[in-house]
């Protein structure tokens, strides 16, 4: 896999993440769950900036940024705040894994950016109710 392929795969994942965050945010009441709403909004904004940066990186690498799908499969039964929070936490776990793959395939500024974003997603999982992990994004190393 080339750096460009890894960037495109990460961008495709970010399109899906952004869609998912939009749906989760729409299903969250700002009035009754203000903390969760704020956390989901922070996630949406971060992933939107990440998508924009990836599109630039793909172009810099000589590629044509992969487009978003019209829609993505999302469990329609996710309605209660704990379910929404868990879905966002799972999304961030997948993002860490995807970004670590980009770390492996890249060097220099792209790798450093992917590392920063992976670290952000890992820490954001704590705000979504998860606990600190030993091997975020690399579950095959976790023998516990």
């Amino acid at each position: 896999m080339s750096v460009l392929d890894a960037l495109q795969a990460t961008l495709a994942d970010e399109h899906a993440a952004l869609y998912t965050y939009g749906v989760l945010g729409a299903r969250t009441s700002q009035a009754s769950s203000p903390a969760l709403f704020e956390t989901l909004t922070a996630g949406y904004r971060r992933h939107r900036a990440r998508r924009d940066q990836l599109q630039l990186m793909v172009r810099d690498a000589g590629g044509d940024p992969v487009a978003a799908e019209p829609a993505y499969d999302l469990d329609g039964s996710l309605l209660r705040p704990p379910q929404l929070e868990r879905a966002a936490a799972d999304l961030e776990a997948s993002s860490v894994e995807m970004l670590l793959a980009l770390v492996a395939q890249s060097t220099g500024a792209v790798r450093e950016w992917a590392l920063t974003e992976a670290t952000w997603s890992a820490v954001h999982r704590l705000r979504l109710g998860e606990v600190a992990e030993t091997w975020p994004g690399a579950p095959e190393l976790d023998r516990a």
Partner: peptide, 11 residues
């Protein structure tokens, strides 16, 4: 691997 260690340490 080091990126995972960094993410864990940050968490």
């Amino acid at each position: 691997v080091l990126a995972s260690v960094a993410a864990s340490t940050a968490q």
